[in-house]
């Protein structure tokens, strides 16, 4: 057998590799993998909480919707700033909406109550401009005061302010952040309220106006 190590000329390397290096790297990789697997979301959330407030978003905030989540999951705005939500549905198969609010409306169900929407609608009484509407399934203005620029999407009633986008759809919402400081949630409740259950939600921190 010509390929056994016995036949090679002179060795160039010492094959007795370091046990310590092996053990350290191996354990670190295992720990990193476990942490990433179980605490990916928590670490992301903690990161945003620690550094998010310092990164107040002005101008355009791009929000991607996918199955089943939002990217980003945290937004920070300041009261009085003029901001734009540029919403895009990145899913190839599902339609998604975006509600913003606090608290929940529940409905009884066979396997326990289910959240159907937010109890308090962030958009109540807010002046908002909708533009660049593309592939919008339907739009519920509720109590917001909406100005449409360009094509006006199919508008209907029932429930909170929520634009619902078809797969690949997008739109822009431009408004001045109202004086409603604190923590708000955004979420998607379509398909029998299941997108929210599946984790499709995020938080908005609204900071008081600069004095």
């Amino acid at each position: 057998m010509s390929d056994t190590p016995a036949s090679r000329p002179t060795p160039r390397r010492n094959p007795e590799w370091s046990k310590t290096l092996f053990a350290v790297v191996f354990i670190l990789v295992v720990i990193a993998a476990i942490v990433a697997l179980f605490w990916q979301r928590q670490i992301g959330d903690a990161w945003s909480r620690m550094f998010g407030t310092e990164r107040v978003q002005t101008g355009t905030t791009h929000i991607e919707q996918y199955d089943y989540g939002f990217h980003p999951r945290h937004i920070t705005w300041r009261v009085g700033d003029k901001v734009t939500i540029s919403l895009h549905n990145a899913s190839a198969t599902h339609w998604h909406e975006m509600m913003i609010g606090r608290g929940f409306d529940d409905t009884p169900y066979v396997v326990g109550p289910v959240h159907t929407q937010f109890d308090q609608d962030f958009w109540d009484g807010v002046h908002v401009t909708m533009s660049h509407a593309f592939k919008v399934d339907n739009f519920v203005p509720n109590k917001a005061i909406v100005t449409f620029v360009g094509q006006k999407p199919f508008t209907t009633e029932g429930g909170n302010f929520s634009p619902t986008l078809e797969p690949g759809g997008s739109l822009d919402l431009t408004f001045t952040v109202p004086n409603k400081p604190g923590t708000w949630q955004y979420g998607c409740f379509v398909q029998q309220f299941m997108h929210y259950v599946a984790g499709m939600h995020g938080t908005i921190t609204i900071l008081p106006a600069k004095t």
């Binding site: 060795p11 160039r12 094959p15 590799w17 290096l21 790297v25 191996f26």
Partner: peptide, 17 residues
């Protein structure tokens, strides 16, 4: 003893990673 000469090789698993 001859084999102990030369630099130590990287642990193969570490090198693989």
């Amino acid at each position: 003893e001859a084999l102990r000469r030369g630099r130590r090789m990287l642990p193969p698993v570490v090198r693989g990673l």
